[in-house]
Design a protein around this nucleic acid. Structure first.
Length: 467
DNA sequence: ATCGGCTCGCGCAA
DNA sequence: TGCGCGAAGCCGAT
């Protein structure tokens, strides 16, 4: 057992078993995956082959063409890479509610043990709370999301400044490539269950066949899958990393990594991104690098937060001063009040805000800096703080390829004071940090951004992602 | 253009 | 117990 692995039940291993099962819920990749390698080690110990199960169901909240396309696009390459290692791969798409929802349990019936991803939000969190009791084999959750494992932090951290020194002390120990475990027994079994065949040309038809929300179209900017993830990382390292520090808060400069969709669906690991970035720089000042600050300190603060609270989507998570100040300003007059639907349709009076919302609708992601303004204005223009929170979560859950992630809920709650500090009081916000249109105009090239989003809307093409 | 004040509380030094 | 300083700011004075 290592510092990434938690046993979530205490069932004995099945003696007469055909394989060890890795249930790839969040880390949908064959490379740089601690959970996969832990499962491979377990399989070798038991002299068994390893089977990877990856499922996608039509029933999770906001299941739509955008999310489904991104996930299914990853399937062929994951299959190729696992099979090249002698590891079995079973992808199953549950298209309708009439299809039985028992694939995991059917595969588990022949498994010696189940290994899955330790992940503190959305569906995987709920699965890992309920499934271990329902299977009759050991169930292990492995932290393959963080560089410094979540287990290394004994409590919920208060802010970036409290977790930063702890990460700096530990990071060298973990900033190492994942060791690949060679499987001793190749997977050659024929399963009773039918996998869903996927080829590059069949993704759209598969998505269309699912009983999901077809009104949320695939992202105009992001293609899913390992090859697209690797290309995105390489291009970032080669072309954009050198100007990241200067331009990361200038959305029109496209200096950020664009990795968040791939990180969220686990098609690439943050460890791979960190190793690629450090290989470029003087390794002794690793943590001084601004990209690694965001990739490791802020991202892993989000995982720390989500792993320690009862409900990562709740306003109860913001500090006392923030809840108090919001209560004091609960009935302040709002100059403009929009409904969730008006926000969703990008129908506010503010063209800059509307452009950000259109970026979410079309690209499936908002630039990190502008997302803060986007959130702050939803607070300013909602009837209540609670309603603003619900709107932000809804819009991210439904449209963002990097939504449903610890980072998503952390970024949203940051707008309500979490991991932040109080500032001079003002209406509606109280002591929550305020952000203004004038600030955006002063600090960023809003005109270039507006033009870009207008082009995206008019042509359906993203000049920065489609060569 | 630049700067200080705003305002709370964590964590460390003492 | 005191003190420095913090997830990305604003505003008014100079």
């Amino acid at each position: 057992m290592n510092d990434r692995v938690k046993a979530l039940n205490s069932k004995p291993a099945r003696e007469a078993a055909d394989y060890v099962l890795y249930w790839s819920q969040m880390n949908r990749r064959a490379d740089s995956n601690h959970a996969l390698e832990f499962a491979a080690g377990l399989a070798n110990q038991r002299q068994l082959p390893l089977l990877v199960y990856e499922g996608l169901t039509c029933t999770y909240p906001y299941a739509n063409d955008r999310m489904h396309t991104f996930v299914i696009e990853g399937v062929p390459e994951t299959g190729r890479r696992l099979e090249a290692r002698g590891i079995g791969y079973h992808f199953h798409l549950r298209r309708t509610r009439q299809d039985p929802n028992d694939r995991l349990y059917a595969l588990a019936a022949r498994a010696a043990a189940i290994v899955t991803d330790d992940y503190p939000t959305f569906i995987a969190r709920r699965h890992n709370a309920s499934v271990p009791a329902k299977v009759d084999v050991p169930y292990y959750a492995v932290d393959s999301s963080c560089i410094v494992p979540m287990s290394q932090f004994a409590k919920r951290e208060y802010a970036a400044y409290t977790i930063r020194p702890k990460i700096q002390k530990l990071v060298a120990r973990y900033l190492k490539p994942v060791e690949t475990v060679k499987v001793k027994r190749a997977f050659r079994l024929t399963l009773d269950q039918q996998a869903t065949p996927v080829a590059a040309g069949t993704v759209a038809a598969l998505v269309a066949s699912c009983d999901i929300d077809h009104s949320v179209k695939p992202s105009l900017s992001f293609t899913g899958g390992r090859l697209a993830a690797e290309k995105t990382l390489t291009e970032f390292i080669e072309r954009r990393l050198r100007r990241y520090t200067r331009d990361k808060n200038e959305p029109s400069a496209h200096a950020t990594s664009d990795l968040s969709p791939y990180l969220h669906f686990g098609q690439i690991s943050s460890l791979e991104a960190a190793l690629a970035a450090t290989a470029q720089a003087d390794e002794t000042k690793v943590m001084a690098d601004v990209f690694l600050e965001e990739l490791i300190v802020r991202r892993e603060l989000a995982f720390n937060f989500a792993s320690y609270v009862d409900d990562p989507e709740s306003m109860a998570n913001v500090p006392d001063w923030a809840r108090k100040t919001m209560a004091e300003h609960a009935t302040d007059k709002r100059d403009a009040v929009y409904s969730q639907e008006q926000f969703e349709n990008a129908a506010t009076h503010d063209p800059l805000w509307n452009a950000m919302q259109k970026e979410l609708l079309l690209r499936g992601k908002i630039h990190g800096y502008y997302r803060m303004y986007w959130g702050k204005k939803i607070i300013e223009w909602s009837a209540t703080h609670e309603e603003a929170l619900k709107t932000m979560i809804y819009l991210h859950d439904r449209y963002a390829l990097d939504g449903r992630d610890p980072n998503t809920y952390t970024n949203i709650l940051w707008c309500f004071g979490m991991h932040d500090r109080p500032w001079q009081s003002r209406p509606i916000f109280g002591m929550l940090r305020y952000m203004s249109f004038d600030g955006m105009k002063r600090k960023t090239n809003t005109e270039a951004y507006l033009k870009e989003i207008e082009f995206l809307e008019r042509t359906g093409k993203d000049p920065f992602r489609i060569a």
